[in-house]
Design a protein around this nucleic acid. Structure first.
Lengths: 349, 349
DNA sequence: CTGAAAGCGCTTACAG
DNA sequence: CTGAAAGCGCTTACAG
């Protein structure tokens, strides 16, 4: 138990239990339990009587008690950085939807990109005994510490960002291919001096996107200058603020592959502020296809990842792992598709 | 227990329990339990020995077992329509954040605006024994059925949309005042023939927003024509599609107060498609201040509701109710502020 | 300050 | 097909 405060509310005044139902029907608690679990062993008449009584007394199944006795769990924990990021909100919606269909409930937790909070929240979530955990790690997470915290108890699936030193399942976007598609698209429009803007070089997703960019450039016979890879925190604000930095490093660039949509949208603001018209004077692409991407001016060419489908897939992979804890860890790549809009050079809508 | 499929996973292989710790330390299980719960009754030396052993054996507290024995709960259920709506995603983030601080975990459920699914999901959530429920009801919810399902067991707080026939706490945005502010703003810019576009007249939030609009118009000496109140499903797509409808009903209108941001963004598309420039030829306002509002062309004048703060407030209100089930039901109104941007007539950015 | 015992609501062999 | 009994992991009076 953590030392933190612990909300615990006195609840259920005089809960109706199997004992009440059994007594009212003149059968044993075992029989009521068998009815509840849909066992074929119970005589049809008995079953009907019990079911009527369950309804009459408004019986509510106590899943926690059943789980305790059966040594099972009917929950899965979902730990993400922040629901206010639409990509993760959609992902969470997909996870919850798929888990619900399989009879599991989602325990929510969020970290706000803080590895400390991540450990604390995870520590609290495991006390609720989830069957497994879907974790989209905070940046700079300590994989070993997380692994230690979960022990061998609880299987986990890591989403989106590789975690060092763990042997859990991993689901990631096809970052490398996505960035390659974006770069090839810009190349096909005639751009040669293309920068890569945004992200932290020490994050796995940034590294992979950079690799895709470099691969596409080389395939076109261009050796990208190291200075063309410009770091920047992946937020709209920072991307706008550091637009000058980008042009200081790559003054001759005519286009940029951006780390993600937020960076691209921020860059568009930064360009406009300098009198450079995005899409017309300078081409750029994003990554994620968040809702704003289609609504910006010009609309943003980007890579669509279907976060809801990813969420569903994550839930399914985790449940497979829960059912078969012995299987070898898996790496699954979710595909990503290029969505061409005005920002890469076509006329704005 | 519902008849639906029920995921339940065999988990925890050989969990470490208080018994293991007690045995290793040569004390009773009661003593270990007292240490866990921070009781001052335990001798400092004993406590230290037990705590060392807890760490050594990687003990994980089983909150479900404790809750069963103590007849308490450490979870709260959150039932919303859809996380992919950014307003509700922010709300959920606020709820989860505030609940976490109080030691509760959030059980997530979503309804997709279906009253049937809402009943089913709620039925499944109550089996997990939450201390309370925060419910943002689906449209056309059956309040009586929901009340019956929860019984007197579980306190609930209703958010955003009034529910008939229930005596639960209620937290709502100040719809009436928000629409009044928006209308007054358009009036102050010189508009006289202002329509109200979007929403279903039978939803409480739409009725309240319409009331605010009507009140502001009357206060300005204008009796709004009934035809100027045009219904439309509150989605971007429908609002764009029915733009013609709006002008058929209110051909002389020069401005519109829209039910929400999605309606306003859809109307902007519909206007542009007809060659009418939003913000320049026709003024409009939204409601909610979703992230896209600031990024549209022109940016959208709208009402900001601080969904995250609403979520925190909802969590706090619910926990108060959990602690004092006897108190009279409360109605709380969350304030809303006007954010003026280009769509209502000022020059676009 | 510590321990033995009972019990939260459920399920599951095991008899019958 | 049904019932008596034990037990999941924890907590809490109650003795000592």
């Amino acid at each position: 138990m953590t030392t933190s405060q612990t909300g615990s509310a006195r609840s259920r005044r005089k809960q109706v239990t199997v004992t009440d139902i059994a007594r009212a029907c003149g059968v044993s608690r075992a029989t009521v339990s068998l009815v509840l679990r849909g066992s074929p062993l119970v005589h049809a008449d008995t079953r009907a009587r019990v079911e009527a009584e369950l309804k009459k007394q408004r019986y509510v199944y106590n899943r926690a008690a059943a789980n305790l006795r059966r040594q099972t769990s009917s929950s899965v924990a979902l730990l993400i950085n922040d629901l206010s990021n639409p990509f993760f909100a959609e992902f969470a919606a997909g996870v919850d939807e798929a888990l619900g269909e399989e009879g599991y409930v989602t325990l929510l937790g969020s970290t706000g990109e803080s590895p400390q909070r991540q450990l604390a929240v995870l520590g609290s979530l495991v006390e609720h005994g989830p069957a497994g955990i879907i974790l989209s790690p905070a940046e700079h997470s300590d994989g070993a510490a997380l692994q230690r915290l979960l022990g061998a108890h609880t299987p986990a699936l890591v989403f989106n960002r590789a975690l060092p030193d763990v042997d859990w399942d991993f689901l990631a976007l096809d970052n490398e291919r996505g960035a390659r598609l974006a770069t090839e698209h810009l190349l096909s429009l005639g751009h040669r001096r293309i920068a890569f803007y945004g992200g932290h070089a020490d994050s796995s997703s940034c590294r992979q996107r950079r690799q895709g960019y470099v691969a596409a450039m080389r395939a076109a016979g261009i050796e990208p200058d190291a200075a063309w890879l410009v770091e920047c925190a992946p937020t709209r604000f920072e991307a706008a603020r550091q637009t000058g930095e980008l042009f200081a490093c790559a003054p001759e660039a005519t286009a940029a592959v951006c780390y993600n949509d937020n960076v691209a949208l921020g860059l568009m603001l930064g360009l406009s502020a300098r009198g450079v018209r995005p899409g017309a004077d300078f081409a750029l692409t994003g990554f994620d296809d968040i809702a704003e991407a289609a609504l910006s001016t010009p609309p943003l060419t980007t890579l669509a990842a279907q976060p809801r489908a990813c969420g569903r897939l994550a839930a399914e992979l985790l449940l497979q792992r829960v059912r078969d804890p012995g299987a070898a860890p898996r790496r699954v790549i979710a595909p990503v598709t290029l969505v061409v809009r005005g920002s890469s050079g076509a006329a704005a809508m």
